[in-house]
Design a protein around this nucleic acid. Structure first.
Lengths: 205, 205
DNA sequence: TAGATTGTTAATCGATTAACAATC
DNA sequence: TAGATTGTTAATCGATTAACAATC
């Protein structure tokens, strides 16, 4: 009894596979193989087959995988066969860029609202959104039933914003503030900090 | 003979440790322990000690680590005890946000120039920079001796931009375009795509 | 059919954790 | 001294790879 637990590291590779498949689909490709996918992504073919086999049998011996079918399946596995609304907190450079970002389309995600605490920003337009007052974050997000948020505030306020979001029912946070958040176990956090990524590379220069 | 090779995954955690240490330093803290650091970061104390021990002995039995000293040491290891110039390619929302980002300060990095191929953007100001013409990417970057670049162009042009950068001597690329780049072994690439991070979490919703 | 490629098992490799002597 | 914490070794755990029967 009980579902098989999929390693986090495997789940983490699925979006990468999915992105490559969608790109192949745009190129009007119909089928691919674990080998081709692996070469594109710098991942071994065996690993790709092993990862996918955790979720089912999606390929055909001798021919490989239907790009469209496999993409559909991964969409379902990742639950991005629907569209999730996202709240953005912070309408500075990063928050604004993210709110205007075109890259969410067809990938199961959509920015739905943006907040800022600066009275001079509240009420202004960012892309297609009117900046809302941060004081209403909890109420508005709870009301909308939103489960995903991005934090693009200064570091000092990120933790308290996270707590408000969690109170409002948010279960997944993408944090652009360069600080570690403390959250309950049932809440997921991912971090984006360009400096972290860059410092991983300066070591090798 | 030959240097001990440090696992990539260990190098990848150093910037995380460094960021936490710098924050503690700002809080005027003087010493910390592997246990405290681990609790803050959600990493086991044993792992932190093991990681650090790959590079030397930085702590004191009974008392732990001097925050300032350990931060200095990691700065040196990651080669961010100096300031690296970065070129940004693409002056759209993301490129502009990154060029104006204040978070590079004191972390060994600095944006030095930004390029765009759109004639209506060339010559305009983005933060403190004048947007340069993408046609000159190779020449200008080579001339400046820049080794680090961020790609913030549309997906379609990202691969060819990467090739120009590599021709110009760039060895580390942070790619914001949602596409995998093919590069020679000696060039490092890191990816930032908010959708990838978000899709890692939707699985658990 | 011959060739290609999957899904899966077993072997290998590598990373994490537990435990503890050393010592501040 | 007693308590705390490091650096390191050995044990454990988990992830990756190699290999191949099955089969399209």
């Amino acid at each position: 009894m009980g579902e098989k637990v999929i390693p986090d590291i495997v789940v983490g590779r699925l979006p990468i596979y999915l992105r490559a498949l969608q790109r192949m689909h745009e190129e009007n490709r119909k089928v691919t193989s674990s080998q081709e996918l692996g070469e594109r992504l710098g991942i071994s073919a065996a690993q790709i087959r092993k990862d996918l086999s955790q979720f089912g049998e999606f390929g055909k011996q001798g021919t490989g995988y239907s790009i469209e079918y496999l993409a559909e399946q991964i969409n379902q596995i990742l639950k991005v066969d629907r569209v999730w609304d996202i709240a953005v907190i912070g309408a500075g450079d990063i928050g604004s860029a993210v709110a205007r970002y075109q890259g969410f389309a067809n990938r199961g995600l959509r920015v739905a609202m943006i907040f800022d605490s600066d009275p001079s920003k509240v009420g202004t337009q960012v892309g297609t959104f009117t900046v809302q007052d941060s004081r209403n974050v909890e109420e508005v997000i709870r009301e909308a039933g939103i489960q995903i948020a991005m934090i693009a505030t200064p570091s000092q306020t990120a933790q308290s914003v996270a707590e408000q979001l969690i109170n409002a029912g948010v279960k997944a946070i993408l944090n652009y503030a360069p600080i570690n958040l403390t959250v309950p176990d049932e809440v997921r956090v991912q971090y984006i900090d360009p400096v972290i990524h860059l410092q991983r590379m300066t070591y090798y220069l």
